[in-house]
Design a protein around this nucleic acid. Structure first.
Lengths: 338, 338
DNA sequence: TTGAAAGCGCTACCAT
DNA sequence: ATGGTAGCGCTTTCAA
């Protein structure tokens, strides 16, 4: 492997000049630049990442901490990861993939050993133990999620509270007055993943504001979980005409159950889902949905990290506005039915 | 951040001694070791990864090249990634995540700049353009898949040919004589992802060996794709009593279709799926399936990379034996029905 | 069993 | 506009 010295000799310049051609940090005459670039190309020179990191204290790598268990929402995780890697590359950075199960130790390991310039974390919990650790790192971090005390740490996420309000106001606008929420699994609430709470709070607030009768219930995965969740909802509120589903996994078995029990969508019951676009459209009935903009969130997380890295200002809490797309699962209820 | 020199001073030894305590590459007296370790702990010393890489020419990082498009089998990809990261950590390595769309350039970039010690690639195509590039790298690589000419490059995968044989022999053992294959989407064949071919070849060979009447067809995603695939299969072969499904995405719509057309599983038609265990069990009818052992394959890929890195011998083609698990989707056909 | 010191390949400061 | 060079923090010979 050729080094910067080899290039310098081949081009008849000093190593520092080669370095400056590479970094553009000082003016170089067109002629010199051309000679250097020719030498670089000819020798197939690639700067040694470690040497660079050592000399410059920058690695051009960011850590992405992902929940690699299978129990969580796999497609959404993949979309975040894709977006983060793609965005990082567009800023000339690479991505080191860490798993959440390494916990605080993993963060400290990569940060203290200077493997990364910044960290992006997903699947944050309400009182996530990693947050105090992040504060102690010299590298900045960006969270995808919104834990309780995130003072001084940048957070990016969908505005789940607004998403709930949007779902309800869409249904209310179609004349629905009795609405059930099929929530995430109890495990999600237990883990204190904050989006569940934020959605629920928004849902309850909006119910009051819009004067709706609503009922909410978590939903275990699988056909049995869906069955019992629906039974609970129906038991607690008569004449439900619409469901909001904030549980991607439950979506499919729920539609099956509704079908099996003869409740047609949207004739007998309307449904608004919160899930990625492609999941909504892949269902037997294309679902009116609020998108989880994983791509936008991931990209924004990287942008935020980059701003932090070069000392520019950032908004420390960035909640993306939800957008509801109408498809085939919601129906207008005529006044006589209300 | 404390350096190795700080630790050396604190422990009253030379920096090299600290280094040897860390690496264990030469004997250190118990007493000295203790002093050094105390100093390391007290100062919170973590060796600088870049400095280490520069001095030792080892990064302790491996690249994982994944297809981060959403069109491919997302859960399986995640399982591979999880396994690779976990296994890598167990060997004290980290994982740099690359996307397939960077192509050859991405591989060369991370390899030439010495960011990684080895590479693991998934989603290989039959005549993958990246293979010649891999051969030129100084770092070893391991493929998850089996492209046409993989001379000199280690490959790890499920033995899809054997998987097809296993599926057919299971069905034949249950008395089935007319069997259809619901294959991957045409896009997969077009992309020349080799597992499709290997499965198909195994399927056709086994049909002959077992004296079966079989018919095969690719299957577009979605309800419509499944419908037309089944129509083709039925048209080409009367009285199909069993299906082999090598298409995870098609599984769900296929079961819906069979249900809708009154073909009960397993009473009217038996099904063997090739998919991850949890996908098989999540279906309305728990499916007899051949597992895609993503975890094992990923782990083995890392082990192979590690062996390569420390110059140990490896098998250059490692095809894992399939294992079929009986569940509720296959039925014995009595002799009178044959 | 331990120490000294020469690099590893690059960046960035100080010169000119 | 360019060159010289002192580190960056570690590993690893060579010596003792």
């Amino acid at each position: 492997m050729p080094t910067i010295n080899d290039v310098a000799k081949a081009a008849g310049v000093s190593p520092s000049t080669v370095s400056y051609v590479l970094s553009g940090r000082r003016p170089i005459s067109a002629e010199t630049r051309a000679r250097v670039q020719a030498a670089i190309a000819e020798l197939g020179f690639h700067p040694h990442a470690g040497a660079r990191a050592l000399a410059s204290s920058k690695t051009n790598v960011i850590a992405l901490v992902a929940p690699l268990r299978v129990d969580v929402n796999v497609p959404v995780i993949m979309q975040f990861a894709t977006a983060v890697v793609t965005a990082a590359r567009s800023y000339n950075h690479d991505v080191l993939l860490l798993t959440k199960d390494e916990g605080t130790a993993g963060l400290e390991r990569v940060a203290h050993s200077t493997m990364v310039d910044a960290l992006i974390l997903m699947d944050l919990e309400r009182d996530d133990l990693r947050i105090p650790a992040l504060r102690r790192l010299k590298q900045p971090s960006v969270l995808i999620g919104l834990p309780a005390d995130h003072t001084g740490i940048a957070c990016v996420d969908l505005d789940f509270g607004a998403a709930a309000r949007e779902a309800l106001s869409h249904l209310a606008g179609h004349g629905h007055r009795r609405i059930g929420l099929v929530g995430p699994s109890p495990a999600v609430y237990k883990r204190q993943t904050t989006y569940a709470d934020r959605f629920l709070t928004g849902f309850l607030d909006a119910s009051v504001d819009l004067g709706l009768r609503t009922v909410t219930h978590p939903c275990e995965p699988g056909a049995e979980g869906v069955r019992s969740c629906m039974a609970d909802l129906d038991a607690e509120l008569d004449g439900i005409t619409a469901l909001v589903v904030h549980n991607e996994e439950a979506l499919r078995p729920l539609l099956d159950l509704l079908h099996a029990t003869g409740r047609r969508i949207p004739e007998d019951i309307s449904v608004v889902a919160v899930c990625p676009r492609d999941v909504a459209t892949a269902m037997p009935v294309a679902l009116t949905s609020i998108d989880i903009p994983a791509h936008d969130v991931g990209t924004l997380a990287v942008e935020t990290a980059m701003r932090l890295l070069d000392g520019r200002s950032v908004e420390y809490t960035r909640l993306l506005a939800p957008s509801l797309v109408e498809r085939d699962s919601c129906r207008e209820i005529s006044a006589s039915h209300r």
